[in-house]
């Protein structure tokens, strides 16, 4: 997929686990796991806002576009 979710890097930088994030933003661990592994087909603005608020980042820090070869 051309859109890459860099949730792992952000969590690592904040020394936070996926379970911690799930507890803090109220999104299920299963859904966050889908997002982290790049299996999500779409993302709600509310989810993006919650993650960015908690991890103190910009949407561009979480998502990146990579050209497929």
């Amino acid at each position: 997929m051309a859109i890459v979710v860099k949730l792992d890097d952000l969590l690592h930088a904040k020394r936070m686990t996926l379970t911690d994030l799930s507890d803090r933003i109220g999104i299920t661990l299963a859904n966050l796991s889908i997002l982290k592994t790049g299996k999500a087909k779409a993302m709600r603005f509310s989810t993006l806002e919650a993650i960015c608020t908690e991890l103190e980042c910009q949407p561009g820090d979480l998502l990146a576009f990579e050209t497929e070869r």
């Binding site: 999104i27 859904n31 889908i34 997002l35 999500a40 087909k41 779409a42 993302m43 709600r44």
Partner: peptide
């Protein structure tokens, strides 16, 4: 439905 299920 498939798309909705893949929405986080």
């Amino acid at each position: 439905r498939d798309e909705l299920e893949g929405t986080v």
